[in-house]
């Protein structure tokens, strides 16, 4: 069976060279327009690491933003579940996460299974429609997306970020727009289990190589592991995955 390579697709993660150098094994996304790192050399150890300290690249996954006065109205019309509170994230039926960055801006992320009707709906919007004051943003290209899995991350991120990310200060569903290693970043603690937390880290895609190497260096003293999408999905745990019905 021929190996799937990022180069088989036009759309590639900003760090696909680094991932290949680390020995990632790729799988095509369900949408078929990119390859994502599915696992490395020890899937069992990777699944275990996801409950402790693990890092995955989810940059090729679908991701869109929407901004403008009518953003919340549009989301309600699409049946998204959320409360109109800024800097909060909500899991969506049908898959994925909706993060509200302000009263007029939202960011939708698909899960590792690629399912997010909300992202698809945003992507289908024309760039500008007269009368609709809600404009799609190409967050899939402007931002990298990394998944940080495991309860050790707040301690590791304390060497990179001046925001208190421990559960008491940064609870389930919290969003922080801040600076990490001197680069602007969005941090989300996915709604779910405090014992097996999952964070999404998003930021300037041009800085992806730099941020990835900062995270690797910060993880090293704590024996963290690189993992792929397979370690984050389908293990039945309520908080680790971005899969369906993760609440």
């Amino acid at each position: 069976m021929e190996q799937v390579r990022p180069q088989s697709f036009a759309r590639r993660s900003p760090i696909h060279h680094a991932l290949q150098a680390e020995g990632a094994v790729f799988a095509p996304l369900p949408g078929g327009d990119a390859a994502v790192a599915a696992h490395y050399d020890d899937p069992a150890a990777e699944r275990a690491a996801a409950g402790r300290l693990a890092l995955a690249d989810l940059s090729p996954l679908p991701r869109m933003g929407l901004k403008g006065r009518d953003t919340f109205d549009w989301l309600r019309a699409e049946g998204a579940s959320f409360e109109p509170v800024p800097n909060r994230a909500f899991a969506q039926d049908g898959g994925g996460l909706l993060a509200l960055l302000s009263m007029g801006e939202a960011l939708a992320l698909a899960g590792p299974d690629g399912a997010s009707p909300l992202v698809a709906a945003m992507a289908a919007l024309p760039a500008a429609t007269p009368g609709r004051l809600a404009y799609p943003l190409p967050r899939g290209d402007s931002h990298y997306a990394f998944a940080l899995a495991g309860p050790l991350w707040p301690e590791v991120l304390a060497t990179l970020c001046g925001v208190d990310l421990r559960p008491a200060a940064f609870a389930s569903g919290a969003v922080a727009q801040t600076s990490l290693a001197r680069s602007n970043a969005i941090l989300v603690r996915h709604p779910g289990d405090d014992d097996k937390p999952l964070f999404s880290l998003l930021g300037d895609s041009a800085s992806a190589d730099y941020i990835w190497s900062c995270l690797r260096r910060a993880m090293a003293p704590h024996a963290g592991r690189l993992v792929g999408t397979e370690a984050l999905t389908g293990d039945g745990g309520s908080g680790t995955g971005l899969g369906k019905n993760a609440h």
């Binding site: 933003g65 901004k67 403008g68 006065r69 960055l101 302000s102 009263m103 007029g104 801006e105 960011l107 004051l133 943003l137 967050r139 402007s142 931002h143 727009q177 680069s183 602007n184 969005i186 998003l202 300037d204 041009a206 800085s207």
Partner: peptide
């Protein structure tokens, strides 16, 4: 024209 100054004051998540 209906735009709240608040949503105008907030731009998209910027780059560096």
């Amino acid at each position: 024209q209906g735009q709240s100054a608040d949503s105008q004051a907030h731009g998209a998540q910027g780059t560096n």
